[in-house]
Design a protein around this nucleic acid. Structure first.
Lengths: 200, 200
DNA sequence: TACGGTTTTGGTCAATCGTCCAAGACGTTC
DNA sequence: GAACGTCTTGGACGATTGACCAAAACCGTA
């Protein structure tokens, strides 16, 4: 078989994915063209449609690949934190690395944007977010969070995305100063037990 | 003077703004063309560049206009709530009207994400958000929130935006089930007073 | 009726776009 | 060396884009 050719093809494919991810961050989802990707990857313009059925296909594969890696690492390291309170503190410190205008932040933002128009991307992104939410919820449960761990995790993940979004508007926003409210939220066990049930 | 002509112009301008806002939600920020807006507004294609310097100019004016009206009404009605706990409860109910796929949600989302590329839009949106944050913070202070009202307001607004974003990914997400964590957050006064200072 | 400022018209321009394809290049197998 | 599968090349196609402009239309005023 022509295994060497296939290898060459896989390398090219990876280069296309990398170039696409970088360009989404630089030019925006709608600002990426097949020719730009090809040039960045150092290949001829036509090669894009050999490896991918369409431009959106390429962009979806590229963005979800990067996002999955980022999210999985973040949730995994969060789960290593001993308790929710130091966890959110660590989380804010980690998020401070994202200014909202750096490539990673922009890629995430662009992906959320495009997800509103592309059902396939929306589905994949939904999976990623639901996954993180579930992992964080179980981490909260394991660490003695007696409130509704699912609800707390949902708000926490939403707050993280919202903060990244707001960071783009105002890079001066000091995330570490927001630990107070988040700490209060992750330990609802002793503070919010009067009228409603305690979760699932 | 030709006051009647000027009046006609103002009406056309308003129609362009309305058509642009609707189309941003329908087709996405990058999916709107001058010809689409003109057709929707019932005018000739060239009229867009008579009333606006460029297409981005039109889109920025249209989106910030709608967003300002929405945000101001939301924060004003939130400030009418008697205390933070019922306030966030009311807020979640209000947010439930936005499915994440309705025109209003889509417009807001598109605007946030376009702001990453357009400095002028970013600046205007930053003003709007900072304004809401400040108003909510002072409302929290007035209602006896002894924690860092600024920080709480920042997290609250970020969570709201994040939830709208996540709602687009998962319309089944039940916002009213998330009251617990938010309630815990808005009354940090009796629960988070040990090591750090109490606000500004 | 003729003039004035203002708005509207409909079309042109060069540029860019996604997609497609026939031809060539490469490395392996017979 | 010939045949083969795989990948790559560079250009072509029709469609769409933002911006622009000369000319026409409108309406109160003189």
């Amino acid at each position: 078989m022509a295994e060497a050719s296939a290898d060459r093809g896989r390398t090219t494919r990876q280069r296309l994915l990398g170039a696409a991810a970088a360009l989404i961050a630089e030019a925006g989802w709608g600002g990426v063209s097949t020719r730009m990707v090809a040039e960045r990857a150092g290949v001829a313009p036509g090669v894009v449609h050999y490896h991918f059925a369409s431009l959106p296909d390429l962009l979806i594969a590229a963005s979800t690949g990067v996002a999955r890696a980022m999210l999985e690492e973040l949730t995994a390291r969060l789960a290593e934190q001993p308790d929710p309170e130091t966890g959110v503190e660590w989380l804010l410190g980690e998020l401070s690395r994202y200014t909202g205008t750096d490539p990673a932040s922009l890629l995430i933002v662009e992906m959320y944007l495009a997800a509103a128009r592309l059902p396939e991307l929306r589905e994949r992104l939904h999976e990623l977010v639901a996954d993180s939410r579930a992992q964080i919820a179980s981490w909260l449960r394991d660490r003695g969070h007696a409130g509704d761990a699912e609800a707390t995790a949902a708000v926490l993940v939403a707050a993280v995305d919202g903060l990244v979004l707001h960071r783009g508007l105002d890079p001066a926003l000091d995330l570490t100063a927001l630990a107070g409210p988040l700490r209060a939220m992750v330990r609802t066990d002793r503070t919010d037990r009067h009228e409603e049930g305690s979760g699932t």
